[in-house]
């Protein structure tokens, strides 16, 4: 089962890949490789095929990429093609109900007039290559599709990406090559940090939007918080000390993701939480950071290096 598939793709893509193999399209922004498949498939089958390339159905985050991907796909066919966006909520108009299969934020849309329209329990997204507009479709529809994978990965040699080893209870993240653990326990910042240090790690630092999204996915409860407190957020390791924000693990502060209007109340809010779930009163803060006073919080995230 597994072997024939690898053989087929090995035939299509040489063992040594400069950037992308022949037949694949290099997407400079994001250093991604795109493969366009004419074979009509359901959303699920398409995603599974992309997984064999160590990738996912393609996601789109800005107009430039949308135009590029549409024009590239149009070279192969005119019509609808799967994107990697799906929702299982009735309200298809709320972007928060959608997700990209590659885990990135659903932060850009380019709907055709009259879209999106409900499709029942679930809906998936298709791109019209001719117009570069999007529309919702039943997930079982048979459409061509586009896979996206990192150009730094040689898809024909999956063994190259042997995962690093994390201790029991920790989760490896390949992009950073670190181990993370989300602990759901109502606790203070100091107790959270002590707990991480007892494990040989520290509270998590965040150095990119991708790492941020990974930690959101790791720690979110999947519930919209109704009250206004931030005790339903998650502690990370950013503290205000010596007149500046610093990571407790000593790494450089080279990425920031404050919510709108944050940080504020600098006379007492010297610690930082990751807003992993939406708050009804502050929707824009979801997935971003908020500085807090000395309060207990629902959970905290530890980060430590793996043993290879």
């Amino acid at each position: 089962m597994f072997q024939p598939t690898i053989f087929v793709f090995s035939f299509l893509i040489p063992l040594v890949s400069a950037q992308c193999g022949p037949g694949a399209i290099y997407q400079a922004s994001g250093s991604r490789c795109l493969n366009v498949f004419r074979t009509a498939s359901s959303f699920q089958s398409a995603e599974e095929i992309c997984a064999t390339l160590s990738g996912h159905l393609v996601s789109i985050h800005n107009t430039i990429d949308n135009t590029f991907i549409s024009s590239q796909a149009q070279k192969y066919f005119d019509g609808g093609v799967w994107l990697g966006a799906k929702t299982t909520a009735p309200d298809v108009t709320n972007p928060l109900n959608w997700y990209w299969t590659d885990g990135s934020n659903f932060d850009y849309q380019n709907y055709k007039v009259g879209q999106p329209s409900p499709q029942g329990d679930t809906a998936c997204m298709q791109l019209q290559t001719g117009t570069a507009k999007w529309q919702t479709t039943n997930c079982t529809a048979q459409l061509p599709f586009i896979c996206s994978y990192s150009s730094s990965v040689t898809p024909t040699c999956p063994s190259v990406t042997i995962p690093s080893h994390c201790p029991s209870g920790y989760t490896w993240y390949d992009e950073t090559d670190f181990c993370y653990k989300n602990t759901v326990r109502f606790t203070s910042f100091n107790d959270a940090r002590s707990s991480c240090q007892a494990d040989g790690g520290d509270l998590a630092s965040i150095h990119s939007a991708n790492e941020n999204q990974f930690l959101v996915d790791l720690s979110k409860a999947g519930i919209t918080n109704k009250d206004k407190s931030h005790s339903d957020d998650v502690f990370i390791g950013l503290v205000y000390q010596n007149s500046k924000w610093q990571w407790t693990d000593g790494s450089a502060v080279n990425f920031l993701n404050w919510g709108d209007g944050e940080p504020n109340n600098m006379d007492k809010e010297w610690w930082t939480s990751l807003v992993a779930d939406p708050h009804e009163d502050k929707n824009t803060e979801n997935t971003r950071w908020n500085n807090v006073a000395q309060i207990d919080m629902r959970a905290f995230i530890c980060k430590k290096a793996p043993l290879h």
Binding site: P167, S168, T171, W172, D174, E175
Partner: peptide, 24 residues
């Protein structure tokens, strides 16, 4: 440290399996 789980999965030494909880 003997767990060899793919990205996003958590190793549990007791069972020697990898798990992933997705809140969606």
């Amino acid at each position: 440290y003997s767990g060899g789980c793919i990205s996003g999965y958590t190793w549990f030494s007791y069972t020697n399996f990898c798990y992933k909880s997705t809140a969606r």
